[in-house]
Design a binder for these strands. Structure first.
Lengths: 110, 110
DNA sequence: AATCTTTATCGTAATATTGCAATATTAAAT
DNA sequence: ATTTAATATTGCAATATTACGATAAAGATT
C-alpha cells in the first residue's frame, strides 16, 4: 500500500485536499506569493526568486497548475503564469464556512 | 535529495505550508469535517466514520495535531479531539488576504 | 540555418507518506 | 488482579514526493 484511498471520500473532500496538498510545500507557497506580488505576470523570473533549480521550479509549477491554482499562457517562447482566483475563492469559502460553524458551536470541551 | 528545503523559506511560508499539507489528504479533511459536524467532541468514533483502519486514523490524527489543526484532551481512557480555531483562522485570514489583493489587481493577462 | 533563451521532460537518488497487522499502553470495569 | 475498551506505537511494504543534472523542445534572435 502507500497510495491514498481517494475513492472512499467525496469529490468535494478530494477537491479541497488536492488544493491544500498543492499548497503544502513552502516553495509553492512562495510561488503563489510571488505571483500576487508582481503586477505583471510575466513569470520567467520565478526561478531567480526561488532557491531551487529550474527543473524543480518547473515541477512545482506543474503541480500548482494540475491542482488548478495557477494557469499559464504561452507568451512568445516564455510562459506567463498567474493565479486562478477560482481556486483561492474555493479555499476562502471553505475556511470561512468552517469558521462560522465553529463560532456557532463554542464547545469548550478542549 | 528528496527532503523539502524548508530552511530557504520564511517561517510564515513554512507555517502555512505545514497547515496546508496537513489538510492535503481527504481522510484528514473528513476528520476535520466530522469534528465540526458533531457537537460534542468525544471522538473515539472517528474510526467508525472513516473507511480506514484504526492505526491509520490514529496516524492522521497525529499529523493534524502536529500541524496544530486539532487538539486533544485525555478523557478517561478515551481521547477528546477537537478543532483548534486558531489554525482555521490563520488559513481564513491568509486566503482572505490573497483574495483582496487579487481584486485590487485585476491583471487580465491570463 | 545556427544560436540563444526559456520552459519542459526524463532519469534517478534520497526521502516522505500511506496503510495496516501486530503489539503496546493506559485507564475503566468486572 | 483480570479483563475489556480505546488509543498509540512499531515495523514494514507499496507508493509518492522532492530535487536536480542532463537533455529535449520550441520560439526568438542573429
Amino acid at each position: 500500500m502507500g497510495a491514498t484511498k481517494t475513492e472512499h471520500f467525496t469529490d468535494k473532500q478530494n477537491n479541497i485536499a488536492t488544493l491544500a496538498k498543492a499548497l503544502g510545500h513552502p516553495a509553492r507557497i512562495a510561488i503563489v506569493e510571488y505571483l500576487i506580488k508582481v503586477d505583471t505576470c510575466i513569470c520567467g523570473d520565478i526561478v531567480n526568486e526561488l532557491p531551487l533549480a529550474q527543473p524543480t521550479v518547473s515541477q512545482h509549477l506543474k503541480e500548482l497548475k494540475n491542482a488548478g491554482l495557477i494557469k499559464g499562457n504561452i507568451e512568445g517562447n516564455a510562459i506567463c503564469y498567474c493565479i486562478d482566483e477560482k481556486a483561492i475563492d474555493k479555499l476562502q469559502n471553505y475556511f470561512g464556512n468552517i469558521s462560522t460553524k465553529l463560532i456557532n458551536k463554542k464547545n469548550n470541551c478542549c
